[in-house]
Nucleic acid binder design. Structure first.
Lengths: 214, 214
DNA sequence: GAGGGATCTTGACACTGTCAAGAAAATACC
DNA sequence: GGTATTTTCTTGACAGTGTCAAGATCCCTC
């Protein structure tokens, strides 16, 4: 009897999708990737739990098993983004060579360029009200990014270590304010004046009263 | 027959609400007020078209006749907020007296204090992705706020007028970055280091290389 | 006083995040 | 190896959101 029917010929009852098994395999990471794609494509409001799920090829409620909610996904995205941010600044520093001043400049340039080129991500990292900024994993990676900037400021400290961190806060506020008030993200256009041709002039004003280590 | 029934006794058919007439009177302004209340109470995500309508005592679709959509309401709220912002800085400047340096410091202090005390509004003004920042009315009021800061920077310009606006952009970026990276809004907690005891130290670094006009 | 435009309401739609219940697969356990 | 449990995902539902269409109501003008 069994020979009468070729098992491979009959339309089998429920092989739901041979290419996509029931288990995704690495859905958590895939959802973060999808979210970053959506943010880069459509800006801060382009990210949605359901759209991220659809882009990862999964039903709308699947993310709930990996993220407690939208805020949790946003926090994970911001965390991943800070890793990219740190490596971007690190590369900018390395490209700048050995000179301490050039290195700090490189960090700041990387900071601003990242804000412009990844405006959606940058928005989530710094401006989203939903990210849980007390999350331990988020804290660790964001502080790693700040450490990169702090390290570049160290050679310019009036006293080392500066107890009030005045210089690094000044540089950090300057570059962040400049990046945020800028210029590049289409949904932030027209916010301010034309940026100066070179950020160096602004940095000069912060470092003017200091000895140049090189 | 008519005497059999006291007209004031029967539950009349449809006097919908004697205290609230069909026409609100000044709904557009009332919606902006309600939105500001909601933002101050519940933060940036507390503002909703329907909630603003309910708070103004009006049906959920009524705002559509005064605002093209949520983005339009947000733009109007941001515009109103910039007016408050400007007067706040102006008061801070007047309280600071005649000394140019003290006046600039007052402006910056007012800037930061406003960001902390009206965090929800500040978020909409500067950080919301939905505000139409090319709206003429918005542009006018926001530029008035910037003018207040620019005016306070004028006495410190190396050359007057500074063609590159380097100084004012430096001060502006510094104070804005400091305010945004701060400190005060509960949903932004834990973002950075402890702020220095006084913003004056940071301002010193911007103005160090300049002649003090007073 | 009648017409017309502005203003508001009601109802509906698609979309959102979130929850509950169940199916399917992987894993643990005996 | 076979069963039980846990993890993972699906389906379905719910309230809340912005937005649109159609109608009721009011005010103003002619």
């Amino acid at each position: 009897m069994s020979t009468c029917i070729d098992p491979s010929a009959i339309p089998e009852e429920a092989p739901p999708d041979p290419v996509r098994p029931h288990h995704h395999g690495n859905l958590k990471s895939a959802l973060i990737d999808a979210s970053i794609d959506l943010l880069n494509a459509d800006g801060p409001s382009g990210l949605t739990l359901r759209k991220a799920a659809a882009r990862a090829g999964v039903s709308h409620a699947a993310p709930a098993h990996h993220f407690a909610g939208l805020a949790d996904l946003l926090t994970a995205v911001a965390t991943r983004a800070f890793e990219l941010f740190t490596t971007a600044m690190r590369h900018a520093r390395q490209d700048a060579g050995e000179n301490a001043r050039a290195r700090l400049e490189g960090i700041c340039t990387g900071y601003i360029r990242f804000a412009n080129e990844h405006a959606g991500l940058f928005h989530v990292m710094f401006l989203s009200a939903d990210v849980d900024r007390s999350d331990p994993h988020f804290l660790r990676t964001s502080e790693a990014a700040y450490a990169e900037l702090r390290l570049a400021c160290l050679p310019f400290s009036r006293v080392a270590p500066d107890p009030d961190q005045t210089l690094e806060i000044a540089v950090w506020s300057l570059v962040h304010g400049y990046a945020v008030l800028g210029f590049g993200a289409p949904w932030r256009k027209g916010i301010g004046p034309t940026p100066p041709s070179d950020f160096r002039d602004l940095l000069d004003r912060i470092l003017a009263s200091h000895t140049m280590p090189d």
